[in-house]
Amino acid sequence: MIEDLFTSFLSSLSSLFQLALIIFPLLIIIEFLKEYGVIDKIGKFFSPLMKLLKLPQDAILPVSVGFLIGLTYGAGVIITVGKEKGFSTIDLTKILILVGISHALIEETVIFAGVGANAIIVLTVRVLSAIIATIFYTKFISVSYQR
């Protein structure tokens, strides 16, 4: 039993190290993108979506990273930016609903297309489902938490 616990511990430590190898460079790249104004350009593109979902403009970065990279690696950015910008629990929940349904859009769309699915339909359904679910949460569920 102790051997199993030790093996599990080493496996968890290895996984944590692998995540750090991905998340730290990602955060450094994001800082460079901020410095050179790329994040602002992405922000202008996603601005109407943020307004529709009643999310702060600062949510653009974690949403973009989640859309493009996915939940596993995007979570580090979501947590970091959420703490840095002081997102409310409701805003974080909306971000996680949005990204949870439509994470890793490029990677997963390519995988689905590779097994014969129509990439445009897959992409459209995932993005629209995420937006509709987030709007539903914004209009109906989060209102009860604000009272």
Rank of each mutant, 00 (worst) to 15 (best):
L21W: 02
L55F: 13
L33P: 02
L26N: 06
L10G: 00
L13Q: 07
L128G: 15
S102M: 05
I42D: 02
I90R: 12
G74F: 04
S142F: 13
M1K: 11
M1V: 09
Y36S: 12
Y137G: 00
V115N: 01
G82F: 01
K44I: 12
A20P: 05
P62D: 14
I22E: 07
I42M: 09
I111P: 01
E3V: 04
G37D: 12
V143T: 04
E107Y: 03
G82L: 04
G70C: 08
A119R: 05
H103L: 09
I131Q: 08
T138K: 10
K139W: 08
I2F: 12
F46R: 10
S142H: 13
I23V: 15
Q57C: 04
S144A: 11
G100P: 00
S47A: 13
V125Q: 05
T72L: 04
Y137E: 00
D4H: 00
T89C: 07
P25M: 05
Y36M: 14
Y137L: 01
Q57V: 11
S15E: 11
A117Q: 08
G37V: 10
V127L: 10
F32M: 08
L16D: 07
L128A: 15
F24E: 04
I135P: 01
L68K: 06
F46V: 08
T7F: 03
F67E: 00
K139F: 10
Y73Q: 11
I132D: 04
D58V: 15
Q57N: 10
L61A: 10
I39H: 09
K85N: 12
I79V: 14
I2L: 12
I135M: 09
I69P: 10
S8E: 11
S144P: 01
H103R: 05
K51L: 08
I39A: 12
L128M: 14
I42V: 15
L33A: 15
E31T: 13
T109Y: 07
F24W: 06
G37R: 11
L71N: 06
Y73W: 12
T7P: 00
A117Y: 15
I97S: 03
V115W: 01
L61Q: 13
S142E: 14
I69S: 10
I29E: 00
T89S: 08
Y145K: 06
V143I: 12
L123G: 07
K41H: 09
L5V: 06
S8F: 07
N118F: 06
